[in-house]
Design a protein around this nucleic acid. Structure first.
Lengths: 229, 229
DNA sequence: GTTCGTTGTTCCGACATAGATACAACGACT
DNA sequence: AGTCGTTGTATCTATGTCGGAACAACGAAC
């Protein structure tokens, strides 16, 4: 999980976070609540109380048994495994959200149809999903995830315009950060902040991208979010 | 913010969450820490202590003044406004993450290049971003956001294959949930869980989608995440 | 029967969080 | 000078969180 962001699953007043996940994982690994607590440098007392709280909200998580060849023990339920998988996916998503450069563009809502709105920005008109607060003339911030942006050569760009399901900005490559398999491309599209696209190295090579080139960036309306400021 | 998910910004040991955002907003609106605390049904004492903690981690957030025509008052700094905007965007992203149906497909890593890997799934081979834990033969869960999926008529589908920057699954429409401007399309692509795509109503109409139709779903490699299980 | 190592349960103390209270200080206004 | 309504500061109490300690209970192994 990214150091600057923290996510938790919530059920009623109870939340499930990193420490809880660590506890469940330590139990799965050691087969004992006592050993898990000890490994995590926490009290068994607290671990038991915490499990009680979590189980009241999320269902049975740990099956505990006393006596037997190993003195007793504990193991995770399927519910616990599901919960951990859910938490992992949330973390990956939030981590992706935090890490994926996100371009924020100021704009004004000019039209609204259900959950979609047209937003006028310095780079042109954008279609985006909006929350219930956004009405015509609302000032909004449009967030465009770098991993949602597809790059095209100007000649190959998909048809655009206000009626298209796909937004498109024409821009100039101002930066290229090429890694092993993934590259970050920075574009000047006329907005205060540059638009960043996270694409594969193959896309960069296929398009023969270099600083100074003209490209068209496209991104889905339903992957574009506008929040009121 | 979605009821099942909670997100916070973190700096060191200090986190900034919903309650903190509410406090800053109430201060901005009333122009006073006392009034804000009162409105939120909290103690002024606590509000002040909390502000102190937040400011130690995030920088100066509130400018306070005593005396004057209104007896004194407080206003937010630019830093506070930036922090709130950042928090709002995180919430919108997390909310989008939680709300956007996300299809999870089991798979096995067959090849890895830097941050990208090939994953064999029941629907075919997928390219996805992976975390550092994922090695060849690792079992992974591939998450595909509904808002990252583009639908195409079979004839118009982009070129596919293991070398393409774009993943593609061929499937059959099994469900259509059409709203005012946004639609959710469910596809049987051969995996245990159906693939869900969040698209505009216009896309549905342009493709003349109906249950039983064959379509091709495509989604970017860099927008596809695989987490180890 | 005894030992072992876990769980089940209860109780206690330390520290953190949160609210309540009170007085001093400030600057505009009367 | 007095009033107003905020802030600055300090102190106190109640509740929640967390860790620690202790004993009983369990079932396999010896």
């Amino acid at each position: 999980m990214d150091a600057g962001v923290e996510a938790r699953l919530r059920a009623g007043d109870v939340t499930f976070g990193v420490d809880d996940a660590a506890l469940l994982r330590a139990i799965a690994e050691s087969g004992s609540v006592s050993a898990a607590a000890s490994e995590l440098g926490r009290s068994r007392s607290r671990a038991l109380t915490r499990l009680e709280t979590l189980e009241s909200a999320f269902g049975s998580l740990v099956e505990r048994r006393r006596g037997g060849s190993d003195g007793g023990g504990s193991r995770l339920t399927d519910t616990a495994h599901d919960l951990l998988a859910r938490f992992d996916r949330l973390c990956a998503a939030v981590s992706g959200t935090a890490q994926a450069s996100e371009t924020v563009v100021e704009g004004t809502v000019t039209e609204r149809t259900g959950e979609l709105a047209l937003v006028e920005t310095a780079a042109g008109t954008v279609r985006a999903l909006v929350d219930e607060n956004a009405a015509v003339d609302s000032a909004v911030q449009v967030s465009i995830r770098a991993d949602a942006v597809t790059l095209h050569a100007p000649d190959d760009a998909p048809a655009g315009g206000a009626t298209s399901a796909r937004n498109r900005f024409r821009g100039t490559v101002t930066g290229l950060d090429v890694g092993t398999a993934v590259a970050s491309v920075t574009l000047d599209v006329g907005t205060a902040s540059p638009l960043v696209a996270l694409v594969t190295v193959e896309s960069v090579e296929r398009l023969a991208l270099a600083v100074g080139d003209e490209v068209v960036a496209s991104f889905k309306a339903t992957a574009t979010r506008a929040t009121t400021v």
